[in-house]
């Protein structure tokens, strides 16, 4: 069966990688105990197979990883596939990529979401392209997973589709953009005023303000001023959240600006 699995993996690798020279290492002999876990992974009991996948993901020997890739190559039930994908991503390696991309196009949205989440761990351009493509998925849960993956992987190719999704009011896109934003991207986001739903824009800019790693403070001032242009009450909420989350001292110009704005918009009350 192992030889057959190896052949199977070769078949789809040939297809998905267009006969790339990527070499598939021959499976190494399993350590004692591993064979039992692999047998459970291959079995008809989904629950046991899912547990086996998790166990294999925690193991560090290459044969455990190979067994997971073999399971993906051969195909398994959706419930197990989700666990196998998560397990594979615990020890990312270049040969995983083809399998994960294959499952990123699976008809089951749970599997697609899992595969896209896993792909965030891979710096390969093909992984980034797959994540950016996932933002166009018809399923909201898959788009959310792709947005999250884009944020984690800082996928530059995802920015335009994320802005498009922001325009459609998608909260995961707002969160992803906030997580990825540098000052230049913040300016692009601010320029979306009037083009995208204001609550989504306010959420995005508010989350940027809360990022400890975003700065310098002069850039936070720009974010506060961008929020000031948003009429939706969500902007007030974002500014109030910023005031609550920021100590009064040491004094920050961005906080002072936010406080001034909140007072002006709420008639003197501050959070």
């Amino acid at each position: 069966m192992t030889r057959l699995r190896f052949h199977v993996r070769t078949v789809w690798l040939t297809i998905t990688l267009c006969a790339s020279p990527l070499a598939v290492a021959a499976p190494k002999p399993a350590k004692a105990g591993l064979a039992q876990i692999v047998a459970a992974l291959d079995g008809a009991d989904d629950e046991a197979a899912a547990r086996a996948a998790d166990t294999l993901g925690d193991r560090t020997e290459p044969a455990a990883h190979e067994a997971l890739l073999d399971a993906l190559a051969w195909g398994t039930s959706p419930v197990v596939a989700v666990e196998v994908i998560a397990a594979v991503a615990k020890h990312p390696a270049p040969p995983d990529l083809a399998a994960l991309r294959r499952y990123a196009g699976h008809h089951d949205p749970r599997i697609r979401a899992a595969a896209l989440g896993a792909l965030a761990s891979y710096a390969d351009p093909a992984a980034r392209a797959a994540i950016a493509a996932g933002l166009r998925d018809p399923e909201a849960s898959v788009r959310a997973a792709a947005a999250s993956a884009a944020a984690r992987g800082h996928v530059a190719a995802a920015i335009d589709p994320l802005l498009a999704l922001l325009g459609l009011g998608e909260e995961p896109a707002a969160r992803a953009l906030a997580a990825m934003a540098d000052p230049e991207l913040v300016r692009r986001i601010g320029d979306q005023l009037g083009k995208v739903p204001e609550p989504a824009l306010a959420l995005c800019l508010g989350l940027v303000l809360q990022r400890a790693d975003f700065g310098p403070d002069s850039e936070r001032v720009e974010v506060v001023r961008a929020l000031a242009k948003i009429k939706d009450p969500a902007a007030d909420g974002a500014l109030a959240d910023y005031l609550r989350a920021t100590p009064k001292t040491p004094a920050r110009e961005s906080r002072a600006e936010a406080e001034k704005l909140v007072q002006a918009r709420t008639g003197g009350a501050t959070p």
Binding site: W12, I15, T16, G75, S77, H106
Partner: peptide, 17 residues
């Protein structure tokens, strides 16, 4: 055939397809 084999394997254990 290679593409179809891959498709078969991907969904052979899948209820929906």
């Amino acid at each position: 055939r290679a593409a179809l084999v891959s498709h078969l394997l991907l969904y052979h254990a899948d209820d929906a397809i």
